[in-house]
């Protein structure tokens, strides 16, 4: 759905995006994760044909950026960084205007406006001026605007930014629903939790793309998998028994806990438990060590400084 090769954007000698190579598959939620100024919005603007790349190539929804911009614009929906609504107009008038820009026929426009206002819980407020809306309502209306023409590909730039937890959850649930309809979603965020919960794949970006993978694979790539065995007490004999297992990569002792690095915890944990029990170990609990996406992200971003 999106393919880029060496995409770059420079502004007056400053590199906003450099050598971006992406491949977003149809129907997936791809999250571009990065700190402020990492080039996420610039990337979206290039892919949405709002600004021209300085270098490189991009193909969006089957069309080439720079050569088939009108066709791309007709195929995509975009939620920009700021909702950018016409505050004096009503919710329905805002949507109707954009539906006309996307070339929807009169009868179809009314039906779509109703459907999306309904889906996002704004139908009852359809005739109210947008200026009277809360931040969350404006964001929902901007999302409805991006979907009116039912695009195959939707760009969402910081969709939950500045929203209260309830509104943010509603928006996240809605994004998940969009994926179930088969749409491809390109999500820009610096909200790690959001990317972790929603995305099939995450691209960590800081001008360049640092890593791209599923959240689970990112965890695996960054950290060795380790199990934590909580015991009543730990003896040297028990540590020796674990170390004697050929597949154990390392063993660390922390008070009455053993942190054991394993290639495949699912297959190897029972043998570790057996060895400890045979060495008179009293096991209280066994769990796999969890790494938050935050740790991974900070590690990746920190590594580029």
């Amino acid at each position: 759905m999106i393919e880029t090769h060496g995409l770059a954007k420079h502004f007056n000698g400053t590199t906003a995006v450099d050598d971006l190579n992406l491949n977003v598959k149809p129907g997936e939620i791809f999250a571009l994760l990065g700190p402020n100024g990492a080039g996420k919005t610039t990337t979206v603007r290039m892919l949405a044909c709002l600004i021209a790349p300085t270098r490189g190539e991009a193909n969006v929804a089957g069309y080439a950026v720079g050569r088939e911009n009108d066709a791309i614009r007709a195929q995509i929906g975009i939620l920009t960084e700021s909702p950018g609504l016409y505050e004096k107009l009503s919710a329905a008038q805002n949507l109707d205007f954009f539906a006309r820009l996307y070339g929807l026929a009169s009868a179809e426009r009314g039906e779509r406006v109703k459907r999306y206002l309904d889906m996002l819980g704004l139908w009852a407020r359809r005739d109210d001026a947008v200026a009277e809306f809360s931040k969350g309502m404006k964001q929902k209306l901007a999302i409805a605007r991006a979907l009116l023409h039912e695009p195959k590909l939707v760009f969402l730039d910081e969709p939950t930014s500045g929203l209260d937890p309830e509104a943010a959850k509603l928006v996240r649930d809605f994004i998940a629903e969009l994926k179930s309809e088969g749409r491809t979603i390109f999500l820009c965020t610096h909200n790690l939790d959001e990317a972790d919960r929603l995305a099939d794949r995450i691209g960590v970006m800081k001008q360049k793309l640092i890593q791209v993978d599923t959240p689970a694979n990112l965890r695996r790539k960054m950290y060795a998998r380790r199990i934590v065995v909580r015991m009543r007490a730990v003896s040297d004999a028990q540590i020796g028994a674990v170390k004697a297992l050929a597949f154990v990569k390392s063993v660390e002792r922390a008070d009455a806990r053993l942190v054991i690095a394993l290639e495949e915890p699912e297959a190897m944990t029972p043998a570790v438990v057996r060895a400890l029990v045979q060495a008179s170990g009293e096991i209280l609990a066994v769990s796999e060590e969890e790494h938050s996406l935050e740790e991974i992200y900070l590690n990746l971003i920190g590594g580029t400084k």
Binding site: A48, D70, T80, G84, E87, L101, Y102, G103
Partner: peptide
């Protein structure tokens, strides 16, 4: 200033 231009320019409008 009201940031409504970007969504408009993202549509197929000439």
């Amino acid at each position: 200033e009201s940031r409504s231009l970007e969504p408009v320019l993202a549509t197929p409008i000439r």
